[in-house]
Design a protein around this nucleic acid. Structure first.
Lengths: 253, 253
DNA sequence: CATAAACGTTGACGCAACGTCAATGTCAAG
DNA sequence: CTTGACATTGACGTTGCGTCAACGTTTATG
């Protein structure tokens, strides 16, 4: 049975002993026991738990939130790991946007392209939306249960990087169709139905199985909850509602 | 001349007015002026400066450090942008390592691969080294002047993602040769000279021009400064010194 | 065995980077 | 003019540690 002193665990993980004592203090990561001298003793269980904590830290989750997650009786290590994976992919996507933004800013400075002030901050603000989404996802889980989240995560894990990008492309296409369809103004129009189909395709990347009912419920949620609406309405006021109508039309046909 | 109130600039950038007032207070980002009511007024100059600040924030640079950077009379916007680019690439590289770590941990949980505790934290600790390196890079600049840093940045900007990965591969190969050569123990050996050549090749990705003297100076620095030594000695105690000897041999021949 | 260095502990203060709120002046619209 | 939205300053509080003092325990060395 491998055991670690506080120094050993701190060195193993690349953090300070102060951090570990703090985590003990806030009941985030208790040692397995205190030995007869009052020294903390950590075991393999704590090692694995610390790794989880560090993934959450990397994803800027607050310690208080990490605590509630890992102390949840329903906490499942594998499930958590798939969640980390998903979020790291998203983080990577954000980073790509920042990289693109730097490049564009440089080109702008060189007089090669035009870039307005909105664009200068767009990539940073994307981060905000994604972080809000992380908290929101937790609430979705609470509201609709683990089933959707778990199935979604399990399938996403198997996505290759290329598939992930395809998923992003699909969403982009959906928004393009939505924009056109909204100019027409008819959720039953060909463009609107193409948008709905693209949304369905987008869902297929993460949903292990599709049902019309689930699809309809999802878009209802988009409209009912302001944060989803806000995310979609960035592409034009009323987008969330329009998508809902388009999907309802498709799923009732 | 476009001007922004504090609310407008905060919204533009996706941050709080409190943040902007704090930045004013600490002399990080002063408004262009205060109007007759005592309201802050920001202009295009401040917009661009704020973008810079936000890139630095994204890269976890402290505000105090950001302040000293952008207040440096030698501060050059374009130079800074190329630096952001470089660091964001590094950050992405780190993220890839974390993504790989999650995947491996999951496979480990499924009993598909073996993973020791060291490996479980390896990706997190890589981050530490890179962050130390960021601070160190600043000191390199101060010690050796801007020339090396600037030339390095300018060339790196034009690297494609593929070239960047090749650069990483080159470093990996160098370490492989170093390891073999150190078992032999002779800095003049064929393996050692291959390592030195790989190091030279690695440098060619960022150095616009190569000189033996610069190369020799660089490896001297690797040994003289503990942090470089530590980075290299992760691959085996004495690696930095051995590389220095190998390169000296090559550059004197 | 004795000693010194390295290990551990708790307690406490301090810091960075804001978030929050109170009190109050200013601006804009009805 | 009134009210709501805008702005200001001042001040307290939070999170997640870093740092250090005081002191007990363990380990390595002579």
């Amino acid at each position: 049975m491998m055991e670690y002193s506080i120094r050993e665990l701190a060195d193993l993980a690349g953090i300070s002993t102060r951090t570990l004592r703090y985590y003990d203090e806030i009941n985030l990561l208790k040692p397995a026991r205190m030995n007869h001298s009052g020294y903390r003793v950590y075991t393999q269980r704590e090692v694995d738990l610390l790794q989880q904590i560090m993934f959450y830290r990397e994803l800027d989750v607050s310690l208080e939130q990490i605590k509630s997650i890992i102390n949840d009786p329903a906490f499942d290590k594998r499930k958590a790991l798939t969640d980390h994976y998903k979020r790291l992919l998203e983080r990577r996507d954000h980073l790509d946007k920042l990289i693109a933004a730097v490049k564009k800013t440089i080109a702008h400075e060189n007089g090669e392209v035009k870039m307005n002030n909105e664009e200068k901050f767009q990539a940073f603000k994307e981060r905000l939306i994604q972080e809000n989404d992380a908290q929101f996802r937790k609430e979705v889980r609470e509201k609709y249960g683990d089933e959707a989240a778990e199935l979604s995560n399990a399938k996403l894990l198997n996505l290759s990087e290329e598939q992930y990008h395809q998923m992003q492309e699909t969403e982009k296409e959906m928004f393009a169709y939505l924009k056109q369809a909204m100019e027409i103004g008819d959720p039953a129009s060909e463009q609107a139905q193409k948008a709905a189909a693209k949304h369905k395709e987008w869902l297929s990347y993460t949903w292990p199985q599709y049902s019309k009912e689930a699809h309809a419920n999802l878009v209802d949620m988009y409209v009912a909850d302001e944060r989803f609406a806000e995310y979609y309405d960035r592409h034009g006021s009323g987008t969330a509602q329009f998508l809902r109508d388009a999907v309802h039309h498709m799923t009732k046909a």
